[in-house]
Design a binder for these strands. Structure first.
Lengths: 262, 262
DNA sequence: ACCTGTGAAGTCATTCACAGCC
DNA sequence: GGCTGTGAATGACTTCACAGGT
């Protein structure tokens, strides 16, 4: 049970697929933009274009929520905004704590997209005493000693971890022990949590690596210049089969982010 | 052409599924950690635990790369690190530009996970003249006027957009025109790009919204207290069917992030 | 005895295509 | 005529389970 199962196999409570849930925020954003321009209705085609998906998928997604459109006309923008917000749980207030106030933590603290979606930054927490009391994005940083008290007093159930990788697990454990049941993790580590706690991960470098993969393929397609062609042994790979493994290069930088003084 | 298709339908060039590609960085991180501890070999079970996936998936993933393991033994750590790095294109140097040096841009500029994976921050670019020349994470910020020159001189093919949503599309257009073919977008907007350009999106608030969805479900399961039960019309939804749509509430905050002075 | 590599089965997600309604 | 809502078809991904190698 060390690692626990982070995500329950069938998370859909009343049947909304995960993939659909992940797109609802996209639709919501597009709809909010339309709402601000006072557009009364949209067709699935238009909304899909604005959200960057295709219209069949959008209609299917909405069909899981109910029948909120009008045939021959489209969807009422305001009504859909409300329905999606409600489905996502954004009609209520979600107090959130952010732990680790480095550059990233500060960026998150000031991120407008949180406040406008029902998320309220209840507290900024950092282990560095020098940070305590200093205001970041208008909110005074508090010391990690007060973490448990803050979570309990404010009824916080969502925590954001923006600390270095080395301390992420222990921060996570404290959050969970204090009652947090959803965690957004920016530290490059796999967190283990008990059943019933959700973890979502955002890793800035993973996305770049995926881009690099595709970028490499593009270059390889143009000319066979430096591409890999087939997986030939190539030039100088490390020991293809070291029996006892001697040195191991032990790079200078490991995995720790170096950002986020925490 | 307008929205273009951002992701090609069958991206696998020689057959590596997207889902697998997205996990390779995870394996690589776990392997790097093992490598630093001078562990010579791992079994699929151990490595899977360290990466937070199950072992069957991991073995299947590796099978797309080739047969790099030894039955009865496991995988040679160093060799796998090399093979995955090569597959991801991390054995070469990738110069990257970061546009928009606010808190988030600064966090990215200093992120250790980039440098250690073959990504080199070639330039930091911001539209604010007051930022020009100021060092961030040891790299002097340059003005956006020089964007095209920098990209061409350094042969940059990957760009990171950390600007406010309002200018993201035009920054994107300039990057693409100058030769960038992969973009990592942190601005909460759908970017439209021509065919052949890859875009990946990271939206900080989307992840939180997904957590809120599940969090709401958890609360609803305990007691029917305030849950939605079924999708009854409930209390006070906006006009379920406004014919011509009168006011539309036009909220104070729209969608723009407010972070990242750009 | 142990562990990889992989066909086969199962599950989930996307797309098609059209009936039904305005 | 235009557009939603949805069964059915297709495709992608995951998991199972075990043959095959060390």
């Amino acid at each position: 049970m060390a690692t626990g199962r982070t995500h329950r196999p069938a998370t859909r409570s009343r049947g909304i697929p995960e993939a659909t849930v992940a797109r609802l925020p996209l639709y919501l954003r597009a709809l909010t933009a339309l709402s601000e321009r006072s557009v009364p209705t949209v067709s699935s085609e238009e909304l899909a274009a604005a959200a960057g998906v295709n219209s069949a998928k959008l209609r299917k997604d909405f069909s899981y929520l109910g029948s909120y459109g009008t045939r021959g006309v489209g969807y009422d923008v305001e009504y859909l905004v409300y329905q999606i917000s409600r489905e996502l749980g954004l009609t209520q207030d979600w107090p959130v704590v952010i732990v680790g106030i480095g550059n990233l933590g500060a960026a998150l603290a000031g991120y407008g997209g949180f406040a406008s979606r029902g998320f309220r930054v209840a507290a900024l927490i950092d282990a560095d005493p020098a940070m305590t009391g200093r205001p970041v994005a208008g909110i005074p940083v508090q010391h990690s000693d007060d973490l448990e008290r803050i979570i309990e007093e404010d009824g916080v159930s969502i925590g954001v971890i923006a600390t270095p990788a080395g301390v992420a697990q222990q921060v996570c454990d404290r959050l969970v022990a204090a009652g947090v049941t959803s965690i957004l993790n920016f530290a490059p580590t796999v967190l283990s949590v008990p059943d019933g706690v959700d973890v979502r991960k955002v890793d800035l470098s993973i996305e770049l690596q995926i881009l690099a993969f595709h970028e490499q393929r593009k270059a390889g397609e143009d000319a066979g210049a430096d591409g890999d062609a087939e997986h030939t042994p190539a030039a100088a790979p490390p020991a293809p089969r070291g029996t006892t493994g001697g040195g191991t290069r032990k790079g200078p930088d490991g995995d720790v982010p170096a950002v986020m003084p925490a």
